[in-house]
Nucleic acid binder design. Structure first.
Lengths: 157, 157
DNA sequence: TATTGTTATACTCTATAACTATA
DNA sequence: TATAGTTATAGAGTATAACAATA
């Protein structure tokens, strides 16, 4: 049989949007933004980056001299995850680890010139990715969403 | 040394909120909602559920007779992931697989009475989890967020 | 020939714990 | 004694490909 045999003419996908789960913010957000990450990864792929490594590179380019511990806390990642991400970026010549002279346990992650250029390219890609992922929302709605998320994450704005 | 040696008095975390990355919707959303998933998993833990299995159980309880294929598409998961999630729920007696008589390739995932009772409990937990995860937003802001996410996911509302 | 569920495999991500060097 | 970075390991999530039963 080529078509559905169900009594109703509407598809499961249409009917499912009324299910209780479809009104839960956590569910909706995870569904929307895991798709968003897929899109971002696709846009970043030929720059040798993924969403994760992009976020570390971005913070290394922000001229705030983060230690690996700072990055772990800010990016909500485990310090051990930062190690492999910085390893990867350093191997590609995009960042360098500089030992903090004031506390020789710490390593500040610093972007190279190549890293800054790569990040500039990558920012254009993530902008395109955001545009694709949020094509269902108007510019105004996107700004509302951005503001709500900033308040959620930074508990101010 | 006990305190920071940096020139500025503000912490890295405060200064980082102005970095370009901190204005990207995808970054903010992933940061907020992976934390949200951690919270939800913690609330669901002693019911033997996680966010993933909860979402499958939720759709099995919605009286829409989804096939595993329907679930895969709606939940944005691979059909093979649905297999193990349904395996787990069926092993715990929360759902049953019923062969669709009209297409014997398909299996409809149907909630048992035990499954429905467990889901009712679980819904209370996810409500608490949402409350904890979104404590930074007012009720009105939460509804705005919900509406924006529904539009994003269902391209209507 | 195409589709549903299934199995298998590899890779990424998440979560802990332990180790070393510095403080 | 505590902290920063590192290594190791196990478990959950992601992404593909192939196969048997059925359409």
């Amino acid at each position: 049989m080529l078509e559905t045999d169900k009594a109703d003419s509407t598809s499961y996908l249409e009917r499912a949007s009324d299910a209780p789960l479809s009104h839960e913010i956590e569910f909706l957000a995870v569904k929307a933004f895991t798709q968003g990450t897929r899109i971002a990864n696709r846009y970043l792929q030929d720059l040798g980056l993924r969403a994760r490594s992009y976020s570390v590179l971005a913070m290394a380019c922000a001229d705030l001299d983060p230690t690996q511990r700072d990055l772990a806390e800010f990016l909500s990642l485990d310090p051990s995850q930062i190690v492999s991400l910085v390893d990867e970026l350093e191997r590609d010549g995009l960042v360098r680890r500089l030992v903090d002279p004031s506390d020789r346990r710490s390593k500040v992650v610093h972007a190279t010139e190549v890293g800054r250029a790569r990040f500039a390219e990558a920012q254009l890609r993530t902008r395109s990715a955001e545009n694709e992922a949020l094509s269902g929302l108007s510019t105004e709605d996107r700004e509302t969403l951005r503001s709500l998320l900033r308040r959620l994450v930074f508990a101010a704005d």
